[in-house]
Structure formats: structure tokens, C-alpha cells
Amino acid sequence: MAYLHRGDCSFLLQDFYVLEHADNFMMHLIVTDVDAWWRHVEAKGIASKSGELVGISEGGAMIGCESGMKVGEKGSLRLSDLSSALPFVVRAHEGEAIHVEFHFAKAQAASLQEWLNRHIPTTSALAS
């Protein structure tokens, strides 16, 4: 465990990972000047680390972005109205897009399948 302190901020950091906790963890940050904080976030490029979902399946996704992520690097994908992030490993680059393979537990697989059923039309739905 490590105690990190800078200015008026401090927190404890430990090597601890439980999927159920990580999927539901939120951090509350209080700042005295929201506008100054947002300028800091934008200057660091934190707010722009997102991409466009080009394609998705139960096994992975193609994400259009200039991520700078390398093949083999791990990350996570957040989808609107899906309660947890989907952990992935980058498998390939294609132009300004990355192909990722999901690595998650059965519960997340079931949640993703439900999400896919709600958001991606099936072949039979397209035929009617």
C-alpha cells in the first residue's frame, strides 16, 4: 500500500483488484474551481481519449480512434447504458482504428449480449 500526497490531495493506493468492486467503483472529486479543473483536463488530453465504435460482437470490437495503443496493450471500453466497462486487449491496427478482443467474466458476457440484443438489429429483424 502507498500513501500519495500532492498539494491538498492525498489518497491510499494498493494492489487490489476484485472485478465486482472495479465494475461498481466511483470516485468523487471535489474541486474549488471547476472551470480551472476542466482547462487542466483538456490541456492534458484526458477528455479526448475516446473513439467511435465502428463494430462490435461478443468477442471484440473495432474502435475508430487515434489511441496510440500498441498491440497487446490492455484497456477498457465503456458503452452507454452498460453498467460495467469491458476489459480488452488490442489485437491489431487498421488505419486510424484498433481491433480489440474482450477479456471478461461470464456475467459481463451476459450483460454485453443483452446490450447487443437491444442495440444491434439481428438479420431476421432486418428482413422483416
Rank of each mutant, 00 (worst) to 15 (best):
E20W: 00
F11D: 10
H103I: 15
I30F: 05
F25Q: 02
S80G: 01
L82G: 07
V18A: 10
S10Q: 12
V54L: 05
M69D: 00
L86H: 01
G60R: 09
K74H: 14
M69A: 11
N24W: 02
V89K: 09
R39F: 02
R78H: 04
N117H: 06
S80A: 11
P87L: 07
K44D: 11
C65D: 00
K74N: 11
H28M: 08
E52Q: 14
S10E: 11
G7A: 01
F88I: 10
P87C: 03
V34R: 13
L19I: 13
L77F: 01
A107M: 06
S67D: 02
E52T: 13
D8V: 04
Q108R: 15
G60V: 10
G55M: 00
Q108V: 03
V18S: 10
A2W: 06
V31W: 00
A85Q: 00
K74C: 03
T122F: 01
M62R: 13
V54R: 12
D8K: 13
G72M: 09
F16K: 13
T122I: 06
R78I: 05
T123V: 13
D35I: 07
A36C: 07
V34C: 01
A85C: 04
A110M: 05
A85Y: 07
G55Q: 10
A125Y: 07
M27S: 13
D81L: 01
A97Q: 12
M26T: 15
K106A: 12
G7N: 03
S50E: 04
V89D: 09
K44G: 08
D81Y: 08
C65I: 07
Q14E: 15
L86Q: 05
R6H: 15
G55Y: 06
M26G: 13
N117T: 15
F25C: 13
V18L: 14
G95T: 07
I98S: 02
L53G: 04
A2K: 13
Q108T: 03
W38H: 08
R39I: 08
S128F: 09
G59V: 05
G59Q: 12
G59S: 14
A85H: 04
G68T: 08
D23P: 08
E20L: 01
G60T: 08
G51V: 10
S83Y: 04
Y17C: 06
A92N: 14
G55R: 05
M1D: 10
C9G: 02
H40V: 14
Q108A: 03
Q113S: 12
F16M: 12
D35K: 12
S67P: 00
